[in-house]
Amino acid sequence: MASIDLEKMRQKIKNTQWALVDFDWGSPGAEKITTEQWPKLKTFMADLMWIEHVGARGFAALAKSAPTDNLREIYTYFHAEEQRHANAEMALMKRWGMLDKNEPPVPSANLRLVIEWLERYADDTPFNLLATLIPMLEVALDGALCKYLLETVDDPLCHEIFAKINDDESRHLGVGFTVMEMQGKGPHYIAFIQMLGHLFDPRLIAGALVYFPLLNSMRDNLIAMGMQEEKLYKSIAKFKEIGGRTDQGRRNPWFQVIQYHGTIMVDRSNHFYHVPVDMLVALSNKIPRRLLPSPPTWVAELTHRPIA
């Protein structure tokens, strides 16, 4: 993926906005969800929707720390677009009768912890880290999940909506990889030392402690739903391939750390990583609900209604 002109991209983003009202939510096709598929799909969609929503908060943090006005505006749009994806996915859940009392699905304990971490520390997270991590999540999770969904669901409306979502995501990735390459400019050793400093920041360590288990639990959920693990591996490989295509991309130290983490995450034989992380998953699931922090108010922005 070649670097893109970010000025032109900003215009393109503005010119390609879509809304939930553009779709006929009462059109036939909802009945194509089979009884057998329904419970698994419900869990899958809830995970997908929350990933989009959490990603949205990540873009909000990026918009705050972006080094230029142009990037700030782009990330502001991406924040809103991820929210749009979450809203659209929630509207699909509503169409398929998967929302209890029309409320968003209850997030898992891992997700609640990630949301809490984002609320507290996302805005202080180094720009370079977030700007590299989000493309990885988009390729690995978003990409793999969307692909899987389209392969298994026959509802034509779902395909229409995900065509739009995928268009948005391709722009997010275009910008994401361009920004990752931009980070490879400048003296290598300074970027490396700065990264080392941040790696020992207690806030980032706390972030890793909630983020690693989230990835593991999601991987397990996906596999339980019948998704082939290879799809996830291919997505991680894609991130590694595109992000490391150029010298500049490879010189971005955060890219090296995150792609390495991606590699060990999908390597189930790496017990050194997976045993403690799986323990953290089990531990977080044991946290009583009442002890989990109440969700921040940005979570209440989620809606399945195309019109307010």
Partner: peptide
């Protein structure tokens, strides 16, 4: 605080995909 995408006949569409009427 979502960016405004466009006006519509009945209101304002924002980039979060919702039409506010």
């Amino acid at each position: 605080t979502w960016p405004i995408a466009r006006m519509s006949e009945k209101g304002i569409r924002c980039a979060e995909g919702i039409e506010h009427q």
